[in-house]
Amino acid sequence: MRPVYVAGFAELPHLLQDNLLDEPEMVQRVTAAALADAGLGRDDVGFTCSGSNDYVMGRPFSFATALDGLGAWPPIRESHVEMDGAWALYEAWVRLQHGDVDVALAYGFGKSSLGSVEAVRTLELDPYSLAPLGIGPLPLAALQARALLDAGLATEADFAAVVERSRRDGNRNHTAPMTEAMSAAHALTLPYISSPLRGHDGPVRTDGAAAIVLSTEPVGPRIAGISHCIDAHQPGFRDLTVSRSIATAAAAAGGTSGVDVVELHVEYSSQEGIVLRALGLDSSVSVSPSGGALVANTPMVAGLCRIGHAANAVRGGAKRALAHATSGPLLQHNLICILEPA
């Protein structure tokens, strides 16, 4: 494989509601910032790929409008995935392997505040057998959490500890929204919203955008491996306490040996343990030092941000950082990207 490096990363502040920026302005600002971080200009980019979701944005072809923010003139080589920006980055990485371009730009954008992400995510479920039940992501996550408790693989105190750490780290990350600091002990006293999950076990849903510049020049952390894998859709068709697709993707990305930092796209505190076990890691590694997707959960962006923050970790001295992005109900589809110093 052709070596590919993360040359630049930028994210807009993840806001609970962004009333000021429309999609083109979000895309303009975040892509310009990522290119500036890379020390490159728009004309240096050979391929651009974005990730967004029409239902999140409430209209068809939302990515077409966003293209205005890129200054796509003269016409650019460009593609779009209806997935998290992490998969846009994957497509960009593949394009760099194809070999006709040397710099690629991947970005994602999304706004939770326009509608109900819970309602939208309910519509990603099988339209014949699941969606009509109206069971959204939170009750599904609660089923998974219950399965973990019943299997003796976790306790509610474990979930609370993830919340405490995520909020503490998130409040040190200027791009994540400020959240009320919460000790694990206090978290355990708060009421269930879908037992065994409490309100803070779920994500803080935000608006935002992120962009990453990839280059074949060794100007930043090197992508040591990247792969993704999808599991069965029906929750009843898989063991909810494990993630086979994460293990498969991690192995295909080169394995987790030597990993010292992980950035996990965990939407419910209960899922962190599943991801770590699938990766063959434990909490001796630094877990989501950015605060993770629990405290800054921008749809179609949170996964791409994990790669950006893993790159930042390598820039900050990590030897082997692993980023994880997820899509679909209960960690159905997972991407693993491993970064090392150039």
Binding site: N53, E82, E124, I230, A232, F237, S327, Q332, H333
Partner: peptide, 10 residues
């Protein structure tokens, strides 16, 4: 159907 690749994977 949102992101129908998810339910069509099987």
């Amino acid at each position: 159907v949102v992101q129908p690749e998810l339910f069509l994977a099987g």
